[in-house]
Write a protein that binds this DNA or RNA. Structure first.
Length: 858
RNA sequence: GCUCCCGUAGCCCAACGGCAGAGGCAGGCGACUUAAACUCGCUUCAGUCUGGGUUCGAAUCCCAGCGGGAGCACCA
């Protein structure tokens, strides 16, 4: 309990009270409506700063605090640089958790979602990010998702959205299909269940048509996106170039194509392998003996029973079944036995390969397991012009000449020869290098009409159908007579039916199918009874273009205004977690390119610069309730205040690094803020004071920070800016207590600059300081002062003198000292003479005015 | 197995190829206090993971190794 006396002291001392400051400024800021972007007549240049919008799963947590904190630092920074900054916020509010909560607790998914949003908005308000709330959007609003449907129809018209049957990833827990990107190490990205396969007819977006552009345009992002994300996307798209080769099949009219990156090794092909779950395998086995049919059938069953997890384990033994059919090698007419084996995938290339066991590890493993022939056609011992050969050493370390090398024998070593070399046993290709042989073999195939250059991708088309309720209905009607009929644009949005009365529990088919009134419609084309498509869209569709919806979030006539896009987009600074490196970020890039092709956008990449924040950990591991190491966002806010929390997160280290909460000190941050704030109350000069009269030493620190802060902010070195602010506050304190005193102009200048820059991290404290310094709100809109360059150069500097790189003396010299003068001074130094001794001076490097290095010999 | 990133005081982190320290945490000493906490002041602490190389000069660039982290992993 505080006594009256203590309270009085409290007030007298003007103690820093973060709660009071927050309560004071929140309503005032809202009244001032500071962060609305794009006001009519605003002529400032524009910046678009965006943090990935949150899924409303409950309340905000420390991860949000970090991510939105960094986004807000960027937004505030650009405002201080004189930009009209668009910094919107919205809600990624469709998705499974709402539905699962509905099933578990009987809540309506919509009610659950919007209640969470209310809760999170209250937390955001306290956290005070500088959002333009007037553009708030919810992807679960019909006003939003109607444009998902509109985009879907546009893509359907272009053939980009299509339906096909196939084996798809199936999550047995969520009871829905998953896109390839949502399967992580064979597990469901969301719930962790082991993913299985299921044959279904589903909707896809043809991302593979954009694979080359998605890959090639990554070059534009080099340097502006974390290199990790760029390489992950490259990896994910996984382009390989080579050739399609036509193989005739005995007893089949048409030849079958095979994709290979190594057409140069055609002469080394000794068998062919087809994917057991491909149509081709089924067709080939149909013409085989009953015994083969039985063995193949058993094999196929065992393959289908495998989960992706089993398939993912490497070095598991190769399995397969000989189909008793033969292919003809187009280049030399050889008969190649055809096998079915699960190491060949049905949905990559053509689901069939030519096996060259001597030069492909997987083929070699298979050949060794089934005693199939191996023929070496590339001599990898032979050096190739233009390639520096690695010369192997024998056991005594003596380089071995080619004739001393052990014979190439993949069969006995078990190692396939995949390196550079010279072609042998390959007829017209003999003697060529690997790369020349690849080129020549493709030419030969083209001349004979047996093959052509080809590319393949690891990337698969994006499966967007979901068999769940809480998502965007797919705007297609299925009619017995007309087939797939798009819902007319004028009938959009196709609203979700009311959840009440629907059984949302996962059954493997969409709950929408049970909404009879909703499903049964008349065909827009022929008027006959028809049914709606009952699947909903992957929620990653919602987030693929939301950055455009912010530009006119309240426009009911269109998805977005291309003129606004011209003004604001693409996003200048995007902030979010690396977990979206290949999901959201790839899909969003794809949508942007589609919209470009449709003529709605003039750019092809959505996010010019990307910052990935790290994670907030506790004691070295991810925070979670079950581990008992959860740091609650709300309780941290209560204990230390918004500003201290934000400063702590910004100061902890580089933004992209993980932060361990055990290593940081919100108490320390609060102390720093209190020190800064106290100074603003002690400044004894008035705002019209003449800066030039101020203490030069303190002014130098102030202006050095003004000079450095922009490039530090733009390279995301927020932790360094905070450290430099601490330095400035410490120096100001010293100037007041032990220097020129609180009335000095430099003290006011330092305090004002502290407030201006502190606004990036601690907006409440900065605003209150700004008011105490005699100004009107808001400091958030004040352009940063320009550094006085004259103050940055010191008149006297300490020059260091090195002898052979070791510091031997320091000299106080004028900053304008000439090279000659400095060298003379250095040579005259007694310490230098001692260090040089009898040695001969061979070189003197002078970097006036800071450094001299004397190199000696002897 | 392949690829990428990172190793600086007890801890978190700074340092255009040029004096290893901006800052914080923790520790120590002191002031305030009857005392403690808070606050304030002062202060100790590493030669940059190891080994080579380039350079007048390397934490920084190059090579190899060790340690840690991440991504990819039958994609023909």
């Amino acid at each position: 309990m505080a006594t009256e006396q203590e309270s009085a002291q409290h007030a007298d001392a003007g103690a820093y009270d973060f709660a009071a400051i927050q309560d004071k400024w929140l309503p005032k800021w809202e009244e001032l409506d500071l962060f609305r972007a794009g006001r009519p007549g605003d002529t400032r240049p524009r910046k678009y700063v965006l943090s990935m919008f949150p899924y409303p799963s409950g309340d905000l947590h420390m991860g949000h605090a970090e991510a939105f904190g960094f986004g807000d630092i960027a937004a505030r920074y650009w405002r201080h640089q004189g930009f009209d900054v668009l910094h919107p916020i919205g809600w990624d509010s469709f998705g499974l958790p709402a539905e699962n909560a509905a099933i578990k607790r009987g809540a309506d998914p919509s009610a659950w979602t919007y209640a969470n949003i209310d809760q999170q908005k209250r937390s955001f308000r306290r956290y005070a990010p500088s959002f333009d709330w007037s553009r708030e959007l919810h992807t679960s609003d019909p006003e939003y998702y109607r444009w998902n449907q509109w985009l879907f129809l546009k893509m359907y018209e272009q053939g980009i959205a299509y339906r096909k049957a196939g084996l798809v990833n199936w999550c047995p827990v969520d009871q829905t299909v998953l896109a390839n990107e949502q399967v992580v190490d064979g597990h469901c990205e969301r719930c962790g269940a082991v993913v299985t396969k299921k044959a279904l007819t589903q909707w896809y977006f043809r991302v593979t048509d954009y694979a080359d552009r998605l890959l090639d345009d990554l070059n534009q992002l080099e340097g502006a996106w974390p290199s990790k994300v760029v390489s992950m996307q490259r990896n994910w798209i996984g382009r390989s170039t080579g050739a399609d080769v036509e193989f005739a099949i005995e007893g089949r009219d048409a030849p079958i194509p095979v994709f290979t990156t190594r057409p140069d090794t055609l002469y080394g092909a000794t068998f062919m392998v087809v994917a057991p779950d491909s149509e081709l395998a089924a067709e080939l086995v149909a013409g085989a003996s009953d015994e083969v049919k039985t063995r193949f059938g058993d094999y196929l069953d065992s393959v289908r029973a495998e989960s992706d997890i089993d398939r993912l384990s490497t070095d598991r033994p190769k399995t397969g079944v000989f189909l008793e059919r033969y292919a003809i090698n187009p280049i030399n007419g050889e008969r190649l036995p055809i096998w079915a084996a699960d190491y060949v995938l049905a949905d990559y290339g053509h689901g069939a390969i030519m096996a060259v066991p001597a030069h492909d590890q997987r083929d070699l493993d298979f050949a060794r397991a089934f005693d199939l022939p191996v023929r070496v056609v590339v001599d990898t011992n032979q050096p190739v012009t233009g390639v520096i050969p690695v010369i192997p050493l024998d056991e005594h370390g003596v380089p071995m000449l080619p004739e001393d090398l052990p014979a190439l024998d993949p069969v006995s070593t078990g190692i396939a020869l995949t390196g550079e070399g010279r072609l042998i046993n390959s007829g017209p290709l003999d003697g060529l290098s690997k790369s020349n042989a690849i080129r020549r073999s493709i030419e030969m195939l083209e001349e004979r009409g047996l093959g052509r250059p080809a590319k393949n991708y690891r990337l698969r088309d994006w499966l967007i159908s979901r068999q769940r309720y809480w998502g965007t209905p797919i705007p297609i009607i299925h009619c017995e007579h007309c087939g797939e009929v798009p819902v007319p644009e004028s009938d959009l949005p196709v609203r979700l039916p009311d959840a009440a009365g629907l059984d949302l529990s996962p059954k493997g088919k969409s709950p929408l199918g049970a909404a009879d009134d909703w499903v049964n419609v008349t065909c827009p084309s022929c008027g006959a009874p028809a049914t709606r498509d009952t699947d909903t869209m992957d929620t990653f569709v919602d987030s693929s273009w939301y950055y455009l919806r912010y530009l006119n979030a309240n426009d009911e006539t269109r998805a977005f205004d291309p003129k606004e896009a011209e003004k604001w987009a693409p996003v200048d600074q995007y902030v979010g977690g690396v977990e979206h490196a290949i999901l959201h970020l790839l899909y969003s890039r794809f949508f942007t390119k589609v919209l470009f092709d449709l003529g709605y956008l003039s750019f092809t990449e959505p996010f010019t610069s990307l910052l990935n924040q790290g994670m907030v950990l506790m004691d070295g591991s991810k925070m979670s309730k079950s581990k008992g190491n959860l740091v609650e966002f709300a309780s941290e806010l209560d204990a230390h205040g918004t500003d201290a929390l934000r400063v702590t997160l910004a100061f902890a280290g580089p933004p992209e690094d993980d932060i361990d909460w055990a290593d940081v000190s919100p108490v320390g941050s609060a102390k720093f803020l209190a020190r800064a704030w106290r100074i603003s109350g002690e400044v004894a000069s008035s705002p019209d004071v003449e800066w030039k009269t101020g203490d030069p030493a303190l002014r130098r620190i102030t202006h050095r920070l003004l000079a450095d802060a922009p490039h530090l902010a733009e390279s995301f070195k927020f932790n360094v800016i905070v450290a430099r602010l601490m330095e400035l506050v410490n120096a100001t304190r010293k100037a007041i207590d032990q220097g020129p005193g609180a009335g000095d102009a430099a003290v006011r200048e330092a305090a004002e600059v502290t407030a201006m820059i502190l606004d990036l991290f601690a907006p409440f404290t900065a605003e209150d300081m700004w008011e105490r310094l005699g100004y009107e709100p808001s400091v958030a809109l004040v352009p940063w002062r320009k550094p006085d360059r004259a103050l940055l150069v010191e008149e006297q500097v300490t020059a260091i003198v090195q002898v052979d790189g070791k510091v031997r003396d320091r000299l106080e010299v004028s900053a304008k000292v000439t090279v000659e003068e400095l060298e003379q001074l250095a040579r005259a130094s007694a310490a230098v003479a001692r260090a040089v001794g009898e040695r001969e001076i061979v070189n003197v490097i002078v970097r006036a005015p800071k450094l001299v290095n004397i190199a000696t010999r002897g």
